[in-house]
Design a protein around this nucleic acid. Structure first.
Length: 423
RNA sequence: GGAGUGGUGGCCGAGCUAGGCCGAAGGCGCUCGCCUGCUAAGCGAGUAUACGGCUUUUAAACCGUAUCGAGGGUUCGAAUCCCUCCCACUCCGCCA
């Protein structure tokens, strides 16, 4: 959520940046509502003030045995007016909040302006795509030959886009999760294992609700949602809190299963593990003081990249343009890993700073060392990494002509020293 | 799921069955100052958040309003009375 005071003072900037995203928003309507709200509140506060004073007076007069019937009747009428005003105020505030909740974040100044993913900007490249002496297979073929992923039976017990990992597939996935968590822990990320089901407040806090309800699996009778990313549970762990400055930055890594309905992506990536309703991810989450968030974003990105370097998987990093960036984000880097079968890079991580946008929604604040000032914190997060897609990258990049997989060096300790996965 | 008890400021804890003097006693903690050879003790002051008054800049001070789990109701007036919900704890039942 954006700060209404900021919007008032910088309406032109807000307009432009919202337009750069390709989003529409009725700024004039919002400002008009706010002006109305202020006026009405000032008036009503005055009425309440008088009522409070007179009410005390009534108490005193009654104790002294005086007549209060007339003054009481007058206050009753004043009370009716106050109630009416409060009701109107409530309606205005609800409307404003609804608007603000549907207004996306403003991108940072250095974010390139562009209309969609075609205008994202290359930030860096690491490693060289490997040359194969044979035609590299797609991961679904490799996996089915090795009998380590069972797409059909996953679908049988749930529906399409659900997969069962079998044998070495399951072990490989688990090894990747452990490698990621251990590697991040070494860099000072504290591991968290948090609920997969959260309430609507949490979803609102990080920006999934109200706008993206369609993307969420919901447990209707319990009013809980399955998390689409651990970002939701981990960030909201701190909702409503005022954190002492000296406890920042908070850095967490968290493994979770993630659940996404993938509404509107029918026909896209239907084969294989790329787009699943349920997938595993190790997420990095940070809460920082405002002045530290830029540096922390750079560090976050490097931590995510570090996993790919550790696994020796070629990748590139893109800076998302204003038209492709996520709703709550102020700046996002996507990391894309090389997939030989597709002869292209595919997204495997998304690292973002939300500045104070999520913090304002979730009310995550910090108290400065002087003990006085309270302000909104900054939140950041990034995948470190999407585990299923990492498994895809390992299978494709480390495949051999005979259909076997060479286990990346870094992963061997996690698989009892195993060097090759074969049928 | 059944029965019961309870949710008050950073924490503990009064007040809630006589509704007004309660944004809330007291204690602890913390901050600043004083005092002290150092430490400890002691003394004094302060110590919630949001919104509004403030408007074309920022901050402080001051004033007002709201908040005693959340929402609603009764009342001139509610931490105190009534209703609904949420949460925690205890016992029983059930279950990884």
């Amino acid at each position: 959520m954006l700060d209404i005071k900021y919007i008032i003072a910088n309406t032109d900037i807000a307009r432009k940046k919202t337009a750069d995203r390709g989003a529409n928003f009725d700024f004039d309507g919002l400002l008009a509502l706010d002006a109305e709200r202020k006026k009405l509140q000032a008036k009503n506060d005055e009425l309440k003030s008088e009522r409070n004073t007179v009410s005390k007076e009534i108490g005193r007069i009654r104790k002294e045995g005086g007549d209060i019937s007339e003054i009481q009747e007058k206050m009753r009428l004043a009370g009716d007016e106050i109630d009416a005003n409060d009701k109107t105020l409530g309606e205005i505030q609800t409307k404003m909040e609804e608007m603000l909740l549907n207004l996306p974040n403003l991108v940072k100044d250095e974010v390139p302006v562009g209309k969609d993913e075609t205008e994202n900007v290359l930030y860096k490249t690491w490693g060289e795509p490997k040359k194969f002496s044979f035609e590299p297979k797609a991961h679904w073929d490799i996996a089915e030959n090795l009998k380590i992923l069972d797409f059909e039976r996953g679908t049988k017990i749930a529906k399409s886009r659900f997969t069962a990992y079998m044998g070495m597939g399951a072990k490989l996935e688990r090894a990747l999760i452990n490698l990621m968590l251990d590697t991040h822990a070494e860099r000072g990320y504290k591991e968290v294992l948090a609920p997969y089901l959260v309430n609507a407040d949490a979803m609102r806090g990080t920006g999934q609700l109200p706008k993206f309800e369609e993307e969420l699996f919901k447990c209707e009778r319990d009013e809980l949602y399955l998390i689409p990313t651990a970002e939701v549970s981990v960030t909201n762990l701190y909702s409503g809190e005022i954190i002492p400055e000296n406890e920042l930055p908070i850095r967490h890594c968290s493994y979770s299963a993630c659940f996404r309905r993938e509404a509107g992506s029918h026909g896209k990536d239907v084969r294989g593990l790329i787009r699943q309703h349920q997938f595993n991810k190790v997420e990095l989450v940070k809460i920082t003081a405002p002045e530290d968030s830029d540096n922390e974003l750079a560090e976050l990105l490097d931590s995510a990249e570090n996993i790919l370097r550790t696994l020796e998987l070629p990748y590139r990093v893109m800076t998302l343009c204003s038209g492709d960036i996520g709703f709550s984000s102020a700046k996002t880097y996507d990391i894309e890993v090389w997939l030989p079968s597709a002869n292209t890079y595919r997204e495997i991580s998304s690292c973002s700073t939300f500045v104070d946008y999520q913090a304002r929604r979730a009310s995550i604040r910090l108290r400065r060392k002087d003990g006085k000032k309270v302000e909104f914190a900054h939140t950041l997060n990034g995948s470190g990494l999407a585990v299923g897609r990492t498994l895809v990258a390992v299978l494709e990049n480390y495949q051999n002509e005979d259909g076997s997989i060479t286990v990346p060096n870094a992963l061997r300790p996690y698989l009892g020293g195993l060097e090759v996965i074969k049928a």
